[in-house]
Design a binder for these strands. Structure first.
Length: 742
DNA sequence: TCAATCCGTATC
DNA sequence: ATACGGATTGAC
């Protein structure tokens, strides 16, 4: 029910009048009288009786017979709300788009074609008009128990509900189960799910060699193909597709080859799943990626078999496409973040592409991340999952290390055939010190590489940093980022003060000395250097300069000589691939005041470098940085797996997420203090802070071991419930896995 | 002794 | 949030 109070975050039972009996099915929107006023809600479940002692009221009305809340979504939403210490209704608001009555009434013409005149829903009959509940049948009125038990209160008592049985310690919401057997074999078995849950998921399968000899990674037409097509280039690729077609719940983390037409690969995976009679949900980060997958799906599936959900759609079109999925007229849904909640019949596969992109983090309470939502759905539904990207996140690595998922990647051999030649320029202190005027001093390798590429008739991509990164500090001598000696949080310089202060715990590090070299002097990091790139462009008068950035993003550029200047995430695809990719943002990226700085740098570099031609076709990548840095090493060798494993190991050592889990509490100082006084935090909770936040607020960070997230989330939600029950005037914002950790 | 008010608690 | 009940206070 649409009440914002944490202590009312549970189902309530109502009687159903005989007139509503038919329409009042699980999943419909309802209006009920609650505490004297009419509120909206969803009907979760019908039941014969209620455990509620007091008197029951009648459902005020069924808003519409459309069953917009799929039971699978309802269960996942409850799990996600629990994981994020949020209210179920807040999650449902994200999951079910606002109703559009006119669209709902229109004959359900499926998106593009769709022939069958759909199920004849006698919806004309079920008008929601007048009905007086009171008179008629008081006694044999059904009662709708809104699932007191069914909603998987997670905690409550030990009586769990059949569907949500999960192995001990392997909370679906948690990114990776603590303990687990072979990937997926322990997953709960949905009611009519396919063959017995057994799956040896992606067994290694050496049949990869038969890949098409096509060579060039460029998006050359043929998408369809022989057997497993391009998936054959990956170890375990064919096995994965076979598992999808057979309806087994294989789960994989996929590192795409440079130049890969990844959208086509995803479409093929979707097609295999749909061929096996199951549904697919695909989530990508932005509209450009969506466009690519949309096209690829159209090519592979044919018309009318999928819908694309885009945040930019108007309410009517958005609801129309949602209904197409909800009414099971299409087996495949692709979209940006909000599509993570798309209902499909018989969920068989969830896919997320480039899960490190911060657009996957939902900005509305309770701030669930698309990867977590999709993996929770996969876990609960016992279906397959694919986490793909050129880069690999710490979370992706964790899925592999815990055995929850298997790796899909190419052998070094295959990789070598696809990768561009990548080289560092070596550290360039002048560049670092004075980026704005550095053009003349750009390492000659950069110039040479660009010039040669243009000469061969290919475009050149220049990746430059965006402005406005948070200033952080690093050792002036060796540039090791300065971290708090107490809690390993990043240090920053507040105002003109000279003493660095920890962004996390607020402690001043007066006597800071660099742990790497002992240096005592600190320097602020670089901000932007766009001008550098513009000057660079002007240095090649023969070639046009095109820019792609926040204001105007280019989808693609032709395969002709041009200098393309782009900020991370806005790089256009080049027809036939870029002859050269120049990465000029090393220091700005690497010294960012974010604990994910290195991972994010890697992701952006790989995403840009993946657009280059293979080395054999002349593709070159130059990164302006010191080749001895681990991040640069990983790029040169195109080894995101090595990098992610190293990164995760380091985070384990420093107790950073996802090796540990964090939550943040933000609010007025008194409110945060009150909250903490009430909360019964698990004993292994570590408190960091408080640290000042915006608008006279402060922020407290809580840290627990990775396996301890569920109890922490529960404790936080309970504390919020106590506070809302006693009408605490000042609110505290709870964020689990806060995205901006600095 | 009754009525107006305050506080705490439940809200199906 | 609101709405209700039971306790409390104050005036007749």
């Amino acid at each position: 029910m649409d009440v914002p109070l944490a202590h009312l975050d549970r189902p309530f039972d109502y009687l159903v009048a005989a007139a509503d009996d038919e329409a009042a099915q699980p999943g419909v929107r309802v209006r009920v009288r609650f505490a004297g006023q009419l509120v909206s809600g969803f009907l979760l479940e019908r039941a014969e009786s209620s455990p509620h002692g007091g008197k029951l009221a009648y459902l005020d009305r069924v808003v519409s017979p459309e069953r917009v809340l799929d039971p699978e979504i309802a269960r996942a939403a409850r799990a996600v709300a629990d994981r994020y210490a949020g209210n179920l209704y807040d999650v449902l608001r994200l999951a079910v788009p606002p109703r559009h009555a006119r669209v709902e009434a229109q004959p359900s013409k499926a998106p593009k074609n769709n022939d069958h005149p759909s199920l004849a829903d006698g919806s004309d009959e079920s008008d929601v008009a007048g009905h007086d509940a009171d008179t008629e049948v008081v006694d044999d009125a059904d009662e709708l128990a809104a699932g007191s038990r069914a909603a998987a209160e997670g905690s409550g008592d030990a009586d769990d509900e059949p569907g949500v049985r999960a192995p001990e310690g392997s909370e679906p919401g948690a990114v990776a189960p603590e303990s687990n057997e072979l990937g997926g074999s322990v997953g709960p078995d949905g009611p009519g799910a396919g063959p017995e849950g057994a799956d040896d998921s992606v067994s290694s399968d050496a049949s990869g060699g038969s890949a098409g000899p096509g060579g060039s990674g460029g998006g050359g037409g043929s998408v369809r193909g022989d057997g497993f097509g391009r998936w054959g280039q990956y170890v375990a690729g064919p096995a994965f597709l076979r598992a999808l077609a057979d309806g087994r719940n294989a789960r994989a983390v996929w590192g795409a080859l440079p130049g890969e037409d990844w959208a086509a690969r995803i479409a093929e995976a979707a097609e295999a799943t749909a061929r096996g009679g199951r549904g697919v949900v695909i989530v990508v980060a932005d509209a450009r990626d969506l466009e690519r997958v949309d096209r690829a799906l159209g090519a592979v599936l044919g018309p009318g078999r999928h819908v694309a959900l885009n945040a930019a759609l108007g309410p009517a079109e958005r609801y129309r496409r949602f209904l197409a999925a909800s009414r099971h007229q299409v087996p495949v849904v692709v979209g940006t973040r909000a599509a993570m909640w798309a209902p499909v019949a018989e969920l068989g596969l969830v896919v997320i592409w480039d899960d490190g992109d911060d657009l996957h983090a939902e900005p509305r309470s309770p701030y669930p991340h698309a990867r977590e939502v999709l993996l929770t759905r996969a876990q609960l539904a016992g279906c397959a999952a694919l986490v793909g990207g050129f880069a690999r996140t710490g979370e992706g690595q964790l899925l592999l290390e815990t055995g929850w998922a298997r790796e899909i990647s190419a052998t070094r051999d295959v990789l070598r055939r696809h990768a561009p030649a990548i080289a560092p320029t070596g550290d360039d202190p002048q560049m670092a010190r004075d980026p704005a005027a550095a053009t003349a001093r750009l390492p000659s390798l950069v110039w040479e590489t660009a010039r040669q590429a243009l000469k061969t008739g290919a475009p050149v991509l220049v990746q430059v940093p965006r402005r406005g990164y948070l200033p952080s500090i690093a050792c002036n001598d060796c540039r090791t980022p300065a971290r708090c000696p107490q809690c390993s949080g990043p240090l920053g310089l507040h105002g003109a003060r000279e003493v660095p202060v920890c962004h996390w715990c607020g402690r001043a590090a007066a006597a800071y000395a660099c742990p790497a070299c002992g240096g005592r002097r600190l320097r602020a990091s670089i901000t932007g250097a766009k001008r550098t790139a513009e000057e660079l462009g002007r240095a090649f008068p023969g070639s046009p300069v095109r820019t792609s950035g926040r204001d105007e993003i280019l989808d693609s550029v032709p395969g002709e000589p041009a200098v393309v200047v782009a900020t991370p995430g806005a790089e256009p695809v080049a027809e036939g691939g870029y002859g050269a990719v120049l990465l000029l943002d090393a220091w700005a990226l690497l010294t960012r005041a974010d604990l994910r700085a290195a991972e994010e740098t890697m992701r952006r570099w790989l995403n840009a470098a993946a657009l280059a031609k293979p080395a054999a076709a002349g593709g070159r990548v130059v990164v302006v940085a010191d080749g001895s840095l681990a991040t640069v090493q990983a790029l040169i060798r195109w080894d995101p797996a090595w990098f992610a494993s190293r990164e995760l190991a380091e985070r384990r050592e420093l107790a950073f997420p996802p090796a540990s889990r964090m939550a943040s509490l933000t609010g007025k100082a008194e409110a945060v203090a009150d909250f903490l006084a009430i909360a019964k935090l698990p004993s292994d909770t570590e408190l960091l802070g408080p640290v000042p936040a915006d608008e006279e607020q402060e922020r407290m960070l809580l840290r627990v071991p990775r396996s301890g997230l569920a109890p922490l989330a529960k404790a936080l939600h309970e504390a919020a419930a106590v506070r809302s029950a006693k009408k605490a005037p000042l609110t505290v914002r709870i964020e689990i896995d806060p995205s901006a950790l600095f």
